[in-house]
Design a binder for these strands. Structure first.
Length: 582
RNA sequence: CGGGAUGUAGCGCAGCUUGGCUAGCGCGCCUGCCUUGGGAGCAGGAGGCCGGGGGUUCGAAUCCCUCCAUCCCGACCA
């Protein structure tokens, strides 16, 4: 491994640990990475990675490289600064929005800092790959990425500058893409397993990047910004981002005589809860009507009163660029009433997108498009005609799994990786073709696959810490072991500690020697905070019996080790903790 | 971008309401002594454009205007 057998004296290292946590840090990974001296902020969402953090990053990168190469990936490096013309060609210069860091050169030409590299790589491959014989092609890089987030937060979990591995696959056809996708899916499982993370691949939405099939790799953590649902069944592997989780229709259409439509007075009933309480009915009997505006039109979205609209599903259904909830003026103009009284009956001027579940409702309640009035005995199909009927609601825990029918559970996740099937979206936009065996030009079928490297480091801290500090898994720990003499003025102790440190480094272990003239407590606290997986403590008591202490950070377990067995003990303990190389 | 809050020493904070001595405290840092198994003790010391600019005033960290930065909630987002 890259850093094998490297060591350092703590007195010479830049590890500025703090006694107090900077007030600006909210989540635990941000707090600990600051406190333990791994990172320092340069600007909002932009960080210095100090030596310890950089070692962790390099280890994660190395694991990624090995797994990419194993699948036939080739590493290259592409520019951060990208010309606008490529982005105009793909159409994303206008679509990407203010999240794209834009700049001009001295001649006034437009550039951007790459948030992702589809345009660059498609252009590169288009120029130099001409034949089907050169496919498939898997190219990747590990590079800084730039996204001018509206609200950078949570330290490295959502920065504006971050390190990302991105791989792009170029295939002859869809079957080739499927194969490349499966390779990457496997590689990602290997990468995150080797990083000792508790993670789960989930079905996801493809967002602005486009394409069809996609999975996100989620590290399970309460601080995660994404909600995922997954099947509780042991035999079922269904797991999806909440944005994409499919709703299962809950049974049969109710059989009941259709009653006569009536308007009733409902003073000040502006919310589903108000209305349910006023009419003494459950929210399931109410139709919720929400108006949205897109860049093209205003639409009405209908779900059952106890459900929430999934805006991602709605957005995908409408095939629009922008989707916002309508403002009160629009609502008034379209429905003729204030917010809170919209309903589908006689709502002629807008398209209606209706959740499938609503179509099964009988004698329901909805707004009358008049102040303080609602309609009862509303029946879809009889009283209003939907324009689109589809699944547009949010799925919650407790609902049935679309795959096996068992119950779904919810969890929070940090997205550390995503794999996409892009198809010909970019090759078509940028006219990137190769010649097939018949001499016919064909579009490359592409996939793209990202891993947030710095985010993975932060996610590892979210999952591996206690009240004392970080607990690095040995595979990605900045160093494996800290050697510390209890009393730096005791020459014998100090010399023995130095000797053990030297033996460890010579044996290929990554070790630090805490030679600082500090009291033992300070060194113990720092070692726990930084999170070295193992600690060798050289003290008077142990040395009297020819022994030193070996402490495991993870569980605090301490063992006495004979002086001549330290290297073996350290190696075997690292292996026991999951390290595979020593 | 909407709402809320905060900017005083490296970090954590007080002082501001009610303007007035040399701007404070804890930690960290430097020197010395002492101590040496979980962030010791004593003594001495360094370190501030009180976020920037403008105003009010005899006088501004404190009041007013403005800009900037940072954080939180929301909206949005590979």
């Amino acid at each position: 491994m890259l850093l094998e057998g490297t060591g350092m004296k703590v007195s010479e290292m830049l590890v500025p640990t703090l006694r107090e946590i900077p007030a600006e840090a909210e989540v635990i990974s941000h707090q600990l990475l600051l406190k333990a001296g791994f990172i320092r902020k340069a600007a909002a969402g932009v960080y210095n990675l100090l030596p310890l953090a950089w070692r962790v990053v390099r280890k994660i990168e190395q694991i990624i490289r090995e797994e990419m190469d194993r699948q036939g990936g080739q590493e290259l490096m592409m520019p951060i600064v990208q010309p606008a013309e490529l982005w105009r060609e793909s159409g994303r210069w206008d679509v990407y929005g203010p999240e794209l860091f834009r700049l001009k050169d001295r001649h006034g030409r437009d550039f951007c800092l790459g948030p992702t590299h589809e345009e660059i790589i498609t252009t590169l491959v288009k120029g130099d790959i001409n034949s089907y014989k050169q496919l498939p092609l898997l190219l990747y890089q590990i590079q800084n990425k730039y996204r001018d987030e509206r609200r950078p937060r949570f330290g490295l979990l959502r920065g504006r500058e971050f390190i990302m591995k991105d791989l792009y696959s170029f295939d002859y056809d869809q079957a080739g893409l499927d194969a490349s996708y499966n390779k990457m899916y496997e590689a990602y499982n290997n990468v995150f397993s080797r990083c000792a993370l508790d993670f789960r691949p989930v079905v996801a939405d493809s967002g602005a990047i486009g394409g069809k099939d996609t999975h996100e790799f989620m590290v399970l953590a309460d601080s995660g910004e994404a909600t995922i649902v997954y099947c509780e069944g042991n035999d079922c592997s269904y797991a999806a981002n909440e944005e994409r989780a499919e709703a299962v229709m809950s049974g049969e259409k109710e059989v009941a005589p259709l009653l006569e439509l009536k308007k009733i007075h409902t003073p000040d009933c502006r919310t589903i809860a108000d209305l349910a309480a006023f009419l003494k009915i459950t929210p399931e009997r109410i139709i919720k009507t929400i108006l949205y505006t897109t860049e093209k039109e205003t639409i009405a979205a209908l779900v059952r009163g106890d459900r929430e609209i999934n805006e991602i599903k709605l957005y995908n259904t409408l095939d629009c660029v922008r989707l916002d909830m309508a403002n009160p003026n629009t609502i008034l103009a379209v429905t003729g009433a204030q917010t809170g009284f919209a309903g589908p009956v006689k709502l002629k001027s807008v398209r209606m997108v209706v959740d499938s579940e609503v179509m099964a409702m009988v004698n329901a309640v909805c707004g009358a498009n008049e102040a303080d009035q609602h309609l009862v005995n509303v029946n879809p199909g009889r009283d209003f005609e939907p324009d689109i009927v589809t699944d547009i609601r949010l799925v919650k825990s407790g609902e049935p799994c679309p795959n096996c029918g068992n119950k779904l559970l919810e969890a929070r996740g940090i997205e550390v990786g995503q794999v996409f099937k892009l198809g010909d979206k970019y090759s078509k936009a940028m006219n990137a073709t190769f010649l097939d065996e018949n001499g016919q030009a064909r579009l490359f079928i592409m996939g793209c696959y990202g891993i947030g490297v710095t985010r993975t480091m932060a996610a590892a801290v979210e999952q591996n810490h206690d009240e004392r500090g970080i607990i690095w898994p040995p595979q990605i720990a900045p160093y494996h072991v800290a050697v510390l003499p209890v009393n730096h003025k005791d020459e014998h102790q100090f010399a023995m500690a130095a000797s053990i440190y030297r033996q460890l480094v010579d044996a290929g272990v990554e070790a630090v020697f805490d030679d600082r003239p500090e009291r033992a407590g300070v060194k113990f606290k720092d070692a726990d905070l930084v999170g070295y997986p193992l600690r060798i403590t050289v003290g008077a008591k142990g040395l009297a019996g020819g022994q030193v202490e070996l402490t495991t950070r993870q569980n605090g377990e301490m063992k006495m080790i004979p002086l001549d067995g330290v290297v073996d003990a350290v190696k075997s303990n690292l292996r026991r903790l999951g390290h595979t190389r020593l």
